[in-house]
């Protein structure tokens, strides 16, 4: 069985947010929700300032606290090491949100895409209402509805359960890369099997001292970061008194 992991090359990452948008596109994420997200910092004082960007997503921890804490095993590890979710078992207790140190779990507070249920036309008779357009294009929820995640998740998660990144389990099981990986124009995300010594992820992990987020918690995250977002070169010097 593969043990899937991701290596993110921060130097190749350009902070464009394509992964965030791609994920929202692929997984029909409701407004305001990001499974793929970022952590940014602006460090230094003018004129010596840089902005640093780190793409984030569920770490698919080997020792996942969300899975441990889930009362009904709605959160579970797949045989491929992916931390997946079954909305039909989820009782909405949100204990996973307590346990996840990365903020990778979202709860569906309102009906997803409810803004598309509005019936108002901004120019009556000349434009659609949001609901009218969804009906006209024969979509579900929102006009760009992607049915794919229905294969082994829910294409749109119901109200009242949590939802989270599933490494695009529906794509992985069909032999496709997670969409954030495919959509990244910078090839900053590399996906693969930790148990395969020849996988690209292992090639990179054998090359760089990879960083994980909050490893001290013992979660054993499987999203690894290599290199620097801004690998500046600078003039050598010993500083001064």
């Amino acid at each position: 069985m593969p043990n899937y992991a991701m290596v993110i090359d921060l130097q190749l990452c350009t902070g464009c947010g394509g992964c965030i948008i791609g994920c929202k596109n692929e997984n029909n994420l409701p407004e305001g929700v990001r499974w793929s997200n970022k952590i940014t910092e602006t460090l230094g004082r003018f004129p010596h300032v840089r902005y640093h960007y780190r793409p984030t997503l569920c770490n698919h921890c080997e020792n996942a606290p969300c899975v441990r804490g889930c009362p009904t095993r709605a959160l579970y590890k797949t045989k491929d090491g992916i931390t997946a979710h079954d909305p039909d078992k989820c009782i909405g207790c949100r204990y996973c949100m307590v346990n996840c140190p990365y903020g990778a779990v979202n709860y569906t507070w309102n009906k997803p895409h409810q803004e598309w249920e509005d019936n108002t036309e901004i120019i009556p008779g000349c434009t659609y209402s949001p609901r009218g357009l969804v009906n006209a294009v024969d979509a579900k929820g929102w006009p760009i509805f992607n049915p794919d995640p229905d294969v082994n998740y829910k294409a749109i998660r119901p109200t009242g359960v949590i939802e989270k990144c599933h490494f695009c389990l529906h794509r992985v099981e069909a032999g496709d890369l997670p969409y954030c990986v495919e959509v990244c124009p910078s090839n900053a995300r590399v996906f693969g099997d930790l148990d395969d010594p020849n996988s690209k992820v292992n090639e990179l992990l054998g090359m760089f001292r990879a960083e994980q987020l909050r490893p001290e918690l013992g979660t054993r995250p499987k999203v690894f970061y290599i290199r620097e977002f801004c690998p500046c070169a600078y003039e050598p010097g010993k500083g001064m008194i």
Partner: peptide, 8 residues
């Protein structure tokens, strides 16, 4: 589908 590891 009980999870005996779960305090909840």
């Amino acid at each position: 589908s009980p999870n005996f590891m779960s305090p909840i």
